[in-house]
Amino acid sequence: MKWPAMGYARAASLPDLWSVLAQHGSAAQIIAGGQTLLATLAFRLSEPGTLVDITRIPELRGISVSSGVLRIGALTRHAELGRDALVARHAPLLTAAVPLIAHPAIRNRGTIGGSLAYADPAAELPACIVALDAVVVTASAAGERRIPARDFFTDLLQTALNPGEIIAAVEIPLAERRSAIQEVARRSGDYAMAGLAAALRIEGGRVVAPRLVYFGVGTGPVLAARASAALEGRALDAASIAAAQAALGEDLDPPQDLHGPPEMKRHLARVLTGRVLNGFLNPSEIAA
């Protein structure tokens, strides 16, 4: 249905944003690319008093590398993320994630900051930044905060953002790592029934700091501690992959949803674990 009646204000800079937010108080709803928020208006799932448009705030733009981190501005659109050379070099997991996010027309508008702030449990980017051990940089009238991605997603559609606080950027530590993302969706571009974003290092033939992060199977991105531990320090081979798959049952507590019961989601997660981890092996090492 048509969107509800509401106000609209556009902030030109961060100081301007703080004054607009102070003026509108709890009636204010930040809008960036709007690809989720505007759809929720059509469903009347939200009825904001005033939309506060942040898309023209220059401080929230840009992708750069400095002091050992890749910094991605919150207003970076998915399409920009997907074609950026610095992202492809330093965080190819994000480059790989972009084609999985909705459709081209939506990727041209949706932003990384919006995706993280909305915190849909089936979205790709929240899982990716947890897998990459990123830091979410927030901004508010009170100043900047830096929140580890693993602490940022607190519950279903809930984040550590305070009222009046926005995401300014995401910082990803530069590191040599292997990473991959895969998901199972009913149709291309749909939200995933289950997905896995994984990152790990292999040093001296051993897995170091594996981070298996599942999406679409919980209230947010799920960092699978036991499955990750089953890989740590071991050679990546059929036995350790099977151990990770076995341990996964303890990590996941998927809710039943439209797609099927919890056990189906666990099954999909195990399948994805095999696909992703086998993808890190040389072809000759993959168990038949």
Partner: peptide, 13 residues
């Protein structure tokens, strides 16, 4: 220059 969903864009913006 980029395709978008017209129903997910605020005219006011």
């Amino acid at each position: 220059g980029e395709i978008v969903r017209g129903c997910l864009v605020l005219a006011a913006s």
